[in-house]
Design a protein around this nucleic acid. Structure first.
Length: 151
DNA sequence: GCCAACGTTGGC
DNA sequence: GCCAACGTTGGC
């Protein structure tokens, strides 16, 4: 059973264009327990992911990618020079997980946060609920398809 | 750059 | 275990 997700990224840090260039990437730096649980337990190979640009001029969904490697320990947590270093994490029982994704496509037209907010079919997505900061958001197939339809 | 909302930390 | 202080997220 395939799952559907929305992953947030700040385009200044890593954008859909970077993923198009790289082909695949590891999704590092998730340091929130709820998002971690999704990455560790629920995000499966073959799942489809909407690539969302946050904290930028026009926030919204800019592309699609696909999970190619399921949850494994995020190596940046053990690297003292990395900005995501977590000295409390034990290598024998890592706290933080990552997945790998591959580029699928860029949307011809991005679907902006404003458009998502204005679509009643999308009102249950955690992206648009008050104060939600979760960076790994589960979607239903219907929500995923609806957003693609809007592009 | 501002600031509301939220998660985490740490003193007690 | 409570909760104030603090840091971060992310829209605007």
């Amino acid at each position: 059973m395939k799952n559907y997700w929305l992953f947030k990224s700040e385009p200044d840090v890593y954008s859909i264009d970077d993923l198009e260039r790289d082909g695949t990437t590891f999704w590092d730096g998730v340091r929130n327990y709820e998002a971690r649980n999704y990455l560790r337990d629920k995000v499966k190979k073959g799942d489809k992911v909407l690539f969302y640009h946050s904290n930028c001029e026009v926030p919204g969904v800019y592309g699609v990618c696909e999970v190619v490697k399921e949850g494994y320990p995020d190596f940046t947590q053990f690297d003292p020079k990395n900005k995501y270093y977590d000295p409390k994490s034990n290598p024998n029982n890592p706290t933080w997980f990552m997945v790998d994704v591959k580029f699928v496509k860029k949307l011809k037209k991005p679907v902006t946060l404003e458009e998502i907010k204005n679509n009643p079919k999308l009102k249950n997505i955690r992206l648009v609920q008050k104060g939600n900061r979760l960076s790994i958001i589960p979607l239903t197939k219907e929500e995923f398809d609806e957003i693609l339809k809007m592009s």
